[in-house]
Design a binder for these strands. Structure first.
Length: 271
DNA sequence: ATAATCACCTGCTCGC
DNA sequence: TGCGAGCAGGTGATTA
C-alpha cells in the first residue's frame, strides 16, 4: 500500500476539490472490503458538508458535523478525483459524489482497504486510539525510539514498522531509512545506541519528506488523485533492488524475509 | 506482555 | 505458449 507518503499525497490531491463541498450521493458498489462498508452510510452523510479532511498514520479522515469517515487504502488502494457519473471499472468499490459534480472514487483490487464510520469521537476508535506518534511531527525523536526500544528483542525493521511505536512507515520506507542510517534491519531494536536512533529518525523524516514531494512511490497500481503515478521509485536505494549493486559500495544487495515481508539491504554498509 | 504466524483478496511475474 | 507457484505498498486476529 500506500504508506504515509502515498496517503499524504492522496490527501493533498483530493482536499482542494472536495473540502467544504456537500455530499450528494454515497455509492457502494462492493461493500466487502476488509470490513463491510456500513450500509447506513448514505443516511449518515448524504447532504452533509465535508467540513475538513486530515490524515492520521495511513488513515484518511473525512470530517462531517455528524461524525468522521475513515478510509484506509490497504495494499492496493488508491483514490481519484473524477467527474460525477464517470463509468465505473471492475475494482471501483466506493464513491462519494458531491453536489458540484465531482466524485472521489476508491479503487482497490485486493480489497484490503477499509471504509468505516467512526462517529463523533473518532480518535477513541480502537483503530486510532493505540497509534504511535506521527513520524513527521516533533514528537518522533531519537530519544523517544531509544526509550521505547529498551529490552526489545524484535528486529529494528519490525520495530519501526509497528504502528504502535511510530505510524506511517511501511515496507518500502523502512528499508530505505535503515539503509540511509547504515543500520542492519536484523539488529535487535534494544541493541541500538541513542546516537544511531537519532540518525535513523533524521533519515526517516528526510525519506518521507522527499517521497511526499515526489508524489509517493508507484510500483504497479498506485496512482495519485489526478491519475498520475508517484516518482519516488527512482530514488529507491534498496527496495526492489535485490542483487543489484549498493549505491554506496557497489556490493550486491541482499534479500531476506522478516515477519513474512521482504527486506533488501547491504550487508557491508548496514551493520 | 511479547513474539511469531495466519488470514484476508486479486493480479501479475517468474520458472518450468 | 501455458500453467501453477509465489509474491505484492497492510494489519487485525489468532496462536504459542
Amino acid at each position: 500500500m500506500p504508506e504515509l507518503p502515498e496517503v499524504e499525497t492522496t490527501l493533498q490531491g483530493i482536499s482542494p476539490h472536495i473540502k467544504k463541498q456537500r455530499v450528494n450521493k454515497v455509492i457502494i458498489r462492493q461493500p466487502k472490503l476488509r470490513w463491510p462498508i456500513p450500509a447506513d452510510l448514505p443516511q449518515l452523510i448524504e447532504q452533509q458538508i465535508l467540513t475538513s479532511l486530515s490524515r492520521r498514520a495511513k488513515y484518511l479522515l473525512l470530517h462531517f458535523n455528524t461524525g468522521t469517515l475513515l478510509i484506509h487504502l490497504g495494499m492496493s488502494g488508491s483514490i481519484r478525483i473524477i467527474a460525477a457519473g464517470t463509468v465505473a471499472a471492475k475494482h471501483d468499490h466506493f464513491e462519494l459524489e458531491f453536489t458540484h459534480q465531482k466524485s472521489i472514487r476508491l479503487t482497490d483490487p485486493r480489497r484490503f482497504g477499509a471504509v468505516l464510520w467512526l462517529g463523533k469521537e473518532p480518535y477513541q476508535h480502537p483503530l486510532l486510539s493505540k497509534l504511535g506518534p506521527e513520524p513527521l511531527s516533533t514528537s518522533l525523536t531519537g530519544d523517544y525510539l531509544y526509550q521505547k526500544s529498551k529490552d526489545k528483542k524484535v528486529s529494528i525493521k519490525q520495530f519501526i514498522m509497528n504502528q504502535v511505536i511510530v505510524t506511517g512507515i511501511g515496507n518500502i520506507y523502512c528499508a530505505e531509512a535503515l539503509f540511509l542510517a547504515g543500520i542492519s534491519p536484523t539488529r535487535a531494536a534494544g541493541n541500538i545506541s541513542l546516537k544511531r536512533y537519532q540518525i535513523l529518525v533524521a533519515q526517516i523524516k528526510k525519506t518521507l519528506d522527499l517521497a511526499i514531494a515526489q508524489g509517493g512511490t508507484s510500483l504497479r497500481d498506485f496512482v495519485g488523485s489526478d491519475g498520475k503515478p508517484g516518482y519516488f521509485k527512482q530514488e529507491l536505494s534498496v527496495y526492489g533492488r535485490t542483487g543489484l549493486p549498493c549505491k554506496q559500495c557497489n556490493k550486491a544487495l541482499t534479500e531476506i524475509k522478516q515477519a513474512q515481508r521482504t527486506t533488501v539491504y547491504c550487508t557491508h554498509c548496514q551493520t
